[in-house]
Design a protein around this nucleic acid. Structure first.
Lengths: 360, 360
DNA sequence: ATCATGCGGGTCTTTTTTTATCCCATTTTT
DNA sequence: AAAAATGGGATAAAAAAAGACCCGCATGAT
């Protein structure tokens, strides 16, 4: 890792460096995840002119980092090793390493991983977060553990980025919540199944709809199958979950004005598998179906891995993570900086000023 | 110090970085030595357009590294600390650190210091070499030592860059050669006196002309004063000397065709206080005057510090340094690379390819 | 004290580079 | 076989850079 002093020297004498570095890094990272990809797609992805991008790709090709073929642009082997090798350096250069430490202290999370970029304008950031979380998740796994995974795009990213190399024996993957009326790709069940497949593990599914009347719920809970899986979920030792924002929640529960109003009154800003948190981290509401069973799931398990990024999620992250013992938070640069901002910190000496708002 | 791997990564992903870095560094260094200096002077010094330079200075001013005032451009305090702090980093970045080690092995010198740049197109390099040598020289000094210094621009630079902070007590500075028909600033006597002044030490001068008939010499040697100082020179424990090239020698001794021819036949390529060396390091000729007295001076003293730079001097350096035990060689990038070339080495992985031939 | 020199900084014109589109032949994918 | 997407190339418009000025002012020599 480079010393902090040297970064400052470099940025002083070559202030254009951070921008160049971030631009090229994002480009390589996108190619890494989307290869083979054409110049036009890249240009529109990064919202930059075709010729500007072409100049970049020409340069990277001359450097032997990418290969442009008729099917599209791919990383060469040296480009691939560069992009992985340079990641920690870029993080350190952008001050993300110190940012991680700061957040770890502020949020009282054992470890924070901050990924370069902004999830909201670079989809690849989500995958990168997923990869980071997947890497840590693998380390936490021990034989015969039960692993609970939540729904949402973040957890889906984790499942996608898990390598298909199997895992310890006897692992069982369960969803940490029932089905919501969403895209099947982001449902907890689907994600649990995919994680299990990647880990070559067993899995059980929870076939419960989102909104359910109390009567119907009571009836379903008498079903042995359902009871069984709920009990299994409660024995989970590892929990991976994303975080929903107030905005999402409102949209999902049907944008009923009444509902919105209640939400506002309650001060709910974040949601985790059916529980709604206010900024102080208190549960102010819940989807009734599973409340009884899963309420303190987050407190019972050994390892809680939280994956959430994007500036909008900063408040929700503080609400959920900042007030409960969590082991790992994987987030992105945009959310991390916003969280720091919300905690009233100014972006100071150690955080590189230019790294914010750089456009590729 | 930055790791070699990181330099390679940076150069791969941002190949324009080395050029920027070197350009700005040279600019700052020049200002450091020549402040206050105007834009026009700087532009003509670096042989670049005025507007190009203006953009650079504008940038450096925005970075707070320089202050442009009506009397000229100066370094700010942060610019000053940057330029000293960044020097080892630049060296490492340009591969000069590994170059030093290579040369140390090849030339069998205990330590080699390679200064960024080319003495032949950047006068500041000479000063920088002088500063490096002066720094080491100070460390070598112990009380009551005799220090012998040679003539030439390089030794003059050392004398100028010595700080005026005094030195150990009882030091005596003597010239390692007589007067040559040169500019007084570069004569050994002048330099010895200046070094003594900086060190607040004593000094003795040797008033012997360059070319002297044997008879005249014999007579002078009978002079007690002369004998005394020659004996003193022979008790020197530290020797600082530059190196003359074949070209210089010929010019100085009068470009007589006969002389030139003899030189060529002898294969003399380097000269040190009156002794001429061929590429194998053998003495092939000498200025008669002092031959008897000083022949093996270089072998008798404790520390020999050699200061010589510029591509043209590479051969002479190899001749003089490569075949005799020396403690320290201070040279520049151009000479160092040329020496490596002459030794038949290709510029390989570790030496940064672009660092050669960069123009500011 | 006065003068001449050289400074920074601004301005203007010319030249070069960059940018933004478009088109085409080819390959890949559907 | 058809459709979509690819890299490469060409061209015109736009922007930026470069170069060559001039001006008021401070400094240092006279």
């Amino acid at each position: 890792m480079v010393l902090a002093a040297e970064q400052e020297y470099l940025s002083l004498i070559a202030p254009e460096l951070p921008e160049i570095l971030v631009r090229r890094y994002r480009l390589l990272r996108k190619i890494y995840y989307s290869a083979p990809i054409g110049r036009r797609s890249l240009a529109s992805y990064f919202k930059m002119g075709e010729s500007v991008l072409r100049k970049e790709t020409d340069l990277l090709r001359e450097q032997g980092l990418i290969a442009v073929e008729t099917r599209g642009i791919c990383l060469t082997s040296s480009g691939e090793s560069l992009v992985t090798a340079i990641t920690p350096y870029i993080k350190s250069f952008l001050g993300l390493t110190v940012l991680e430490e700061k957040l770890s202290g502020l949020l009282k999370v054992k470890r924070v991983i901050v990924v370069t970029g902004d999830l909201e304008n670079d989809e690849v950031v989500l995958l990168e977060m997923g990869r980071a979380a997947a890497k840590i998740l693998r380390k936490c796994l021990k034989p015969h553990m039960v692993l609970a995974v939540s729904g949402g795009t973040s957890c889906a990213a984790v499942s996608h980025m898990l390598s298909e190399s199997g895992g310890p024996s006897g692992i069982t993957v369960v969803p940490a919540r029932g089905g919501l009326g969403e895209d099947v790709d982001y449902q907890a069940n689907t994600i649990a199944a995919r994680v299990a497949q990647k880990l070559k593990a067993n899995y059980r599914l929870l076939h419960l709809p989102d909104s359910l009347s109390q009567d119907a719920l009571d009836m379903l809970l008498r079903e042995k199958k359902i009871k069984e899986i709920l009990d299994l979920i409660n024995t989970a030792r590892i929990l991976v979950h994303g975080i929903g924002t107030a905005e999402e929640m409102a949209r999902r529960r049907g944008a009923g004005t009444e509902e919105m109003k209640r939400m506002n009154e309650e001060g709910a800003v974040g949601e985790v598998f059916g529980f709604f948190f206010n900024t102080r981290g208190e549960i102010v509401d819940s989807i009734p179906s599973l409340g009884l069973y899963l309420e303190d799931l987050g407190n019972r398990v050994d390892n809680v891995i939280v994956v959430a990024g994007g500036r909008k999620k900063a408040e929700a992250i503080i609400a959920v993570v900042g007030n409960h013992p969590r082991d790992l938070l994987v987030t992105d640069e945009a959310a991390a900086k916003r969280i720091l901002e919300l905690y009233g910190h100014k972006e100071g000496e150690t955080i590189y000023p230019n790294s914010n708002g750089i456009k590729i």
